[in-house]
Structures are given as structure tokens and as C-alpha cells.
């Protein structure tokens, strides 16, 4: 594993480049197929509303997959991620209005864990429509 970021080059508070991820109904249909999660709350507006949701919502695992891209793009080698966890706090609501939703992800180094293993903890923040959609979102990354 060859992360392109050196352990010695980061400090607590180092910010990773933030990214925005658009999500439309087409994105969700594609993710449903690739992941095998065909729960209709992710593609059927009538069903979503029947079960009390405001509209179709993104798969939580889709949001989790997008958020870690901020870390893997920064580290270069996705294999540098040794630990990743999130809490699903709010759904990402995806209206069928031609625009969809946007997931905004920022991240910073929260802790340097182990000088030998060169691991750091990165804390992520993910929002959509001004609402925090992931909580306790943390990754441990092994740097160069």
C-alpha cells in the first residue's frame, strides 16, 4: 500500500480537499443495481411517501461510499483505509426535479494515532440540503 500523503506531512487539523457529490434518481437506480439493494424507498416515490418519507431517499450506503472518496482521493491508495464507520443520522432526500440533491463532504485529520503504523484518524462531515446526514463519521488511514 502506497498512500501518497506522508504521515510526517500532516498535523491534527489538516483539512482534506472537500468535495460535492450530486445524486439524482438515475444515480440511485444505478447504485441499486450495482449494490443489489432494491428497497423501493430508493426509487419509488409512491412507496416512499406511503411509509412516511418526504420523497425518495438515497441509500445510506451510497452516501457512505461517496463520503470516503474524500479520503481515498486524498490518500491516493484506497487500500490505505484501514477502518471506516458512520452513523446514518438523516436521509438524503432526492426529488425528481431534474436537479436531485447534493452531498457535501469535508474532512480533517482529528488525531495522529500511531507513529510506527503511521495511522491517522480522519473525521468526516457530510451534509445535504444543510442537514447533517452522517454522524460519527470517521476513518483510520495508513499514510506513507
Amino acid at each position: 500500500m502506497v498512500a501518497k500523503v506522508a504521515y510526517d506531512a500532516v498535523e491534527v487539523g489538516t483539512e482534506l480537499p472537500a468535495q460535492s457529490f450530486p445524486v439524482t434518481r438515475e444515480t440511485l437506480v444505478r447504485y441499486a443495481g450495482a449494490s443489489g439493494d432494491f428497497n423501493p424507498i430508493h426509487w419509488n416515490e409512491r412507496f416512499a411517501k406511503e411509509v412516511g418519507l418526504p420523497d425518495v431517499i438515497a441509500h445510506g450506503m451510497f452516501t457512505m461510499a461517496e463520503a470516503i472518496r474524500v479520503v481515498t482521493d486524498w490518500a491516493g491508495d484506497p487500500g490505505a483505509v484501514v477502518d471506516y464507520g458512520v452513523r446514518f443520522t438523516k436521509p438524503v432526500v432526492v426529488p425528481d426535479d431534474g436537479a436531485g440533491a447534493v452531498i457535501e463532504v469535508s474532512a480533517k485529520v482529528a488525531q495522529k494515532l500511531d507513529d510506527e503504523a503511521r495511522t491517522v484518524r480522519v473525521d468526516l462531515t457530510a451534509t445535504s440540503g444543510g442537514q447533517k446526514v452522517l454522524g460519527m463519521s470517521r476513518a483510520v488511514v495508513r499514510l506513507a
Partner: peptide, 19 residues
């Protein structure tokens, strides 16, 4: 499906370059 173009996911040579 997640829009991630990292070559480590699609190009064996790129993945090998990372070990």
C-alpha cells in the same frame, strides 16, 4: 455507480503500482 474513477478499481496495472 458511485462515480469513482480511481484507477485502482479498474486497471490492474494501476493497482499493482500501489502494491
Amino acid at each position: 455507480a458511485v462515480g469513482d474513477a480511481n484507477p485502482a478499481y479498474t486497471d490492474p496495472e494501476a493497482a499493482k503500482a500501489l502494491g
